[in-house]
Amino acid sequence: MPVHEPTPLERFLNGILPENPVYRQLLGLCPTLAVTAAMKPAMTMVGATAFVLICANLITSLIRHLLKPHLRILVFTLTIATFVTIADRTLAAFAYPMSKLLGPYVPLIIVNCMIISRCEVCSSKQGPKAALADAIGVSLGFLLALASVATVREILGNGSWFGIQLVPESFPTLILMILPPGAFLALGSLLGLATWLGQRRKARVSASEAGSA
C-alpha cells in the first residue's frame, strides 16, 4: 500500500494547530517558559527559532539523498548548531539589549527538540517545498503558543502588552506571573484549556457523525 506523503499545504496547516509543537507535541517547552515574561523577547525568540528551523529544514532536505541513515543526526546537529551561532551573533550585533535579555536561551535553540524532530520527520524524507512549508507552519504554531503564554503573563504580571502600558501604573498586578512559578502555572492552565477545547471538538465531531450515521 503506498504511503500517503503529506503535501506541502498539509504540512503547513498541520504545524499550526493539529500538530502544534508546544500544545500537542510538548516540544520546545524551555523557551516557552523562559522568555515569555513579556511579548518582545518572546517574539524575538520565535524569529530566531523560525530562522534556524527554515534554514536547517531547507539544507537537510537538499542533501537528504546523499546521507547514510545513521549519520543523519550528526549532520542535523551540525547544521542546527551553525545556524544558531549565526542567529546568536546577529542578535548580539544588531539588538544587543535584547540579546542580553534572552541570554543563554538563544544557544539553547540547538537542543530544542522541535527542530531536530522536524528535520527527522519531514525534511529528511521530502523535497525542499514540503520542508519549507513544514518549517513555516511549525514556526507559526510556535508563534501562537509563545504569544498566548506571553500575553497572559505580561498582561497579568505587568499590566502591559508589547511594552505598552494597558492599566494605570498604580493598579496592582500579579507579579508572580513574571516569576518562574507564574510561567509554570500559566503554561499548565493554557495546556489544560487547549486539551479541553480539543476534547470538546472531538466530542462534537463524533456526536455529529453518530447523528448522521
Binding site: 499548565g188 489544560g192 476534547q199
Partner: peptide, 23 residues
Amino acid sequence: VPESLRGAAITMIVAGILALAFM
C-alpha cells in the same frame, strides 16, 4: 484530576507550586 488537566497540564501546575516553594 479533571480530565483536561491530566498528564502534562497538572504536572506543570504542580511544578509551579514547587517553584514557588523553592523561591
